[in-house]
């Protein structure tokens, strides 16, 4: 009804941020809008990956006969089968699986930090933020190892089109398959890794603000919620990267 405006709300309140569209605060709403735009960026990356993969011939034979070649797109589980301290053992996708679990767990500790914030439980926020930061740093460490292994390559290497043997990968050539394969690996996991890095930085900032009591004096822990949204989004993106880069 047009004339059922509450008398307590003055026009000034309405136009100066007094009204909250969707009953969500300005900060949360803007974080959501930013995340949509970021989702489009990642979608564009993953779709581009799919398109470039689709326009290359796929591997036709059985998995046990698979070898790296420049003529077809590699099978991901044959590329990513290394694990730290298990040199030479074939462990397909185990390491990325571990990374997935680490990121999901750090998402869980983030929800617990948000929940503690709702109860004004400063110690709870501190505790769960430490675990979230720890999970993020562990993920980044794993990714550093993964990149290092990918760049240095396998012991045998693989033959390029000109007949020379190539070990590992750079932005122009790689032993695993067509040049675009490594380029997309670096861009997609790198862009995601940079998101994880900035997420850890933001998490640390919030942890600091909670620890010195800034958030408590402010009277609410909404910053934990906003940064939490970003952190869950980073986890969400990894779920898609895991499927479309490593599994399919």
């Amino acid at each position: 009804m047009a004339n059922s405006v509450s008398l307590n709300t003055t026009n000034k309140d309405l136009w100066a941020g007094g009204a909250e569209p969707y009953k969500a605060s300005y900060g949360k709403l803007m974080m959501w809008f930013f995340l949509i735009s970021d989702a489009f960026t990642f979608s564009a990356f993953l779709i581009a990956y799919g398109v470039i993969r689709f326009r290359h011939p796929g591997y036709e034979g059985t998995l046990s006969d698979f070898s790296f070649s420049q003529n077809y797109w590699p099978v991901p589980e044959k590329v990513f089968e290394a694990f730290p301290f298990f040199h030479g053992v074939e462990l397909p996708l185990v390491f990325v699986g571990l990374m997935t679990f680490i990121l999901i767990l750090s998402s869980v500790t983030m929800v617990l930090a948000v929940e503690a914030g709702h109860r004004m439980d400063r110690q709870g926020v501190e505790k769960w933020m430490v675990w979230t930061i720890f999970g993020g740093l562990t993920f980044l460490g794993c990714q550093a190892w993964e990149w290092s292994h990918f760049i240095h390559g396998t012991d045998a290497g693989a033959r390029l089109l000109d007949g020379s043997i190539m070990y590992g990968a750079n932005l122009e050539l790689n032993q695993y398959g067509p040049p675009d394969f490594a380029a997309f690996f670096f861009f997609i996991t790198g862009f995601h890794g940079f998101h994880v890095f900035s997420g850890v930085a933001l998490n640390f900032l919030i942890f600091y603000q909670a620890t010195v009591g800034i958030l408590e004096r402010r009277g609410h822990y909404e910053m934990v919620e906003k940064v939490g949204l970003y952190w869950h989004f980073v986890d969400l993106v990894w779920v898609f990267v895991f499927t479309f880069f490593y599994l399919v």
């Binding site: 969707y22 009953k23 983030m110 939490g228 949204l229 869950h232 986890d235």
Partner: peptide
């Protein structure tokens, strides 16, 4: 599950 529960979107207003 991540979007609806962890990010709480399922418990926000439907229009959001």
């Amino acid at each position: 599950y991540i979007v609806m529960e962890f990010m709480h979107l399922g418990h926000e207003q439907k229009s959001l």
